[in-house]
Design a protein around this nucleic acid. Structure first.
Length: 468
DNA sequence: TTTTGAGTTGTTCGA
DNA sequence: GTCGAACAACTCAAA
């Protein structure tokens, strides 16, 4: 009887540098990678048509890649703690391999699966997840988890890295097992996905990585804040594990220059927020900083919907929100501006922003999204004062999109507005509005709030909550 | 135990 | 237009 293993694939949708797949292939004669369509995720806390569509494309390609190695991807639908023991029984697998994950749902699910498999005498091997370093083992000198980024970053730079693995040379599947069919994308919840979705899958991800390493990363330090370009746009591939962040980081770590160093530092933020969620699972629902748990948030569905639709009357805010709706992605600088606007101009709960982003973002990742929302809402790990995170959407636009390329791309009503009015189109005279083909209040919304006024109110709200 | 240095990304106001 | 000050005080991490 040949030894058999299952590789439970969740967000490791690749064959390159896949620790669980490589280890299983080294240790067993027969290997069956399996993906389980889990209603706990597809219809769970943060369902997303965009990610469902992207996932569907990734799964198709992964199956093809595995077939190229002699294997195939098994598809099952149901709860993992039911499906994995059943499949282990059918295949005679003695070990199940998977990659570590940090979200509260993933950890509870994995524990339940582990217990179910243990009852059948099936061994579990947890392999490193898609992080550059081992986020669970980085500790302060006293052995505590970090709560501040910079000391974490220093330790992270020094931390051991696992080696980058080659894909297995070939795979032999267990015989006589039904593959299961990948249902149509709509069955995964991919109804009404964004119109302009980036190409899913490992090969597209690797192509994007190589292009970024060849042409982008060297200029990253100077250009990453430029709204019209300058970032890697690799985040969807990293979220779904089409790319190994360990491989990417290793390629960047060997380079000199500010761009490579700064980009590597940004990769560390992924690990940091995973580390935070792992050791402080409460942040999934509550502010990291106790004193801000008493902040009161406005409730106004009309304002919230204007923000979601990109109809606030502030061009940069609207450009960012529309980029998100149309593509499932948003430039990082725009994420900061729209986040500040939601929480400090509209005074709406950061969890509403978190939820909307999770619904729409291809890279929607619980740890990263939560950490960044808490950061821009000034309630998270960052100890800088709240007024340092209160961004002016007008000056941000002038600084980071001076030619208006980004705003004009995503807000077509404003294309005819001259540069000097593009950040504050409502200041145009009536004749200037006519000439620009953009009448404020009919072609493009008037500002839904006055930033100068709301800024003062936000300062007061935060000051009062912090002083309690 | 106590001390010390430091903390992603800003904005406004008035001289 | 440029520049410095004010916007607060606190907690983390290491020595």
């Amino acid at each position: 009887m040949p030894s058999t293993a299952l590789v439970w694939v969740r967000r490791e949708l690749r064959v390159h540098d896949h620790p669980a797949l490589s280890l299983a292939a080294r240790e067993h004669e027969r290997v069956a990678p399996v993906f389980i369509l889990d209603p706990g995720i597809l219809r769970g806390r943060f369902p997303s048509p965009a990610r469902a569509a992207f996932l569907h494309g990734c799964l198709r390609e992964l199956d093809a890649s595995l077939r190229g190695l002699g294997g195939a991807l098994l598809i099952r639908e149901g709860r993992p703690w039911d499906e994995l023991p059943r499949l282990a029984g059918e295949t005679g697998a003695e070990t199940v391999y998977w990659a570590n994950d940090v979200s509260p749902y993933a950890r509870a699910r994995d524990e339940r699966v582990r217990q179910a498999l243990a009852r059948d005498g099936v061994r579990v091997e947890v392999c490193p997840g898609n992080f550059a370093a081992n986020v669970g083992s980085i500790r302060t000198t006293l052995g505590n988890p970090y709560r501040v980024f910079t000391p974490f970053y220093r330790a992270w730079l020094e931390a051991d890295r696992r080696p980058v693995e080659d894909p297995p040379a070939n795979l032999t599947p267990p015989s006589g097992i039904a593959h299961g069919r990948l249902p149509a994308a709509s069955a995964l919840g991919a109804d009404d996905p964004p119109a302009r979705l980036v190409d899913p899958g490992e090969s597209a991800g690797r192509e994007a990585m190589h292009a970024w390493l060849a042409h982008g990363v060297a200029c990253y330090a100077d250009r990453h804040d430029r709204l019209a370009g300058g970032t890697s746009r690799l985040s969807p591939y990293l979220h779904f594990g089409c790319l190994s962040v360990r491989e990417l980081e290793a390629r960047v770590a060997g380079r000199t220059g500010d761009g490579a160093a700064e980009f590597r530092r940004q990769l560390c933020w992924r690990d940091f927020y995973a580390h935070v969620l792992l050791f402080h699972p409460d942040v999934a629902r509550h502010e990291m900083q106790q004193r801000y748990r008493s902040l009161e948030w406005a409730q106004d569905e009309d304002l919230l919907e204007s923000w979601r639709r990109g109809r606030t009357g502030y061009p940069l805010v609207d450009a960012g929100m529309r980029e998100l709706l149309e593509t499932g992605w948003m430039h990082n600088r725009a994420r900061l501006v729209v986040g500040s606007f939601l929480t400090k101009d509209l005074h709406l709960d950061w969890r509403e922003g978190e939820r909307h982003f999770m619904r729409r973002l291809l890279d929607g990742d619980e740890a990263n999204n939560n950490g960044n929302w808490q950061w821009i809402a000034s309630v998270g790990t960052d100890s800088a004062p709240y007024f340092r995170r209160l961004l002016n959407p007008i000056s941000q636009q002038r600084r980071h999109d001076p030619e208006g390329e980004y705003v004009r791309r995503w807000v077509p009503e404003l294309r005819g507005v001259p540069d000097e009015h593009l950040a504050e189109p409502w200041r145009m005279s009536e004749s200037e509005q006519q000439e620009a083909g953009c009448v404020i209040g009919s072609d493009y919304p008037a500002p839904i709030v006055d930033h100068a006024v709301e800024r003062k109110r936000a300062m007061e709200r935060y000051r009062a909550a912090g002083a309690e």
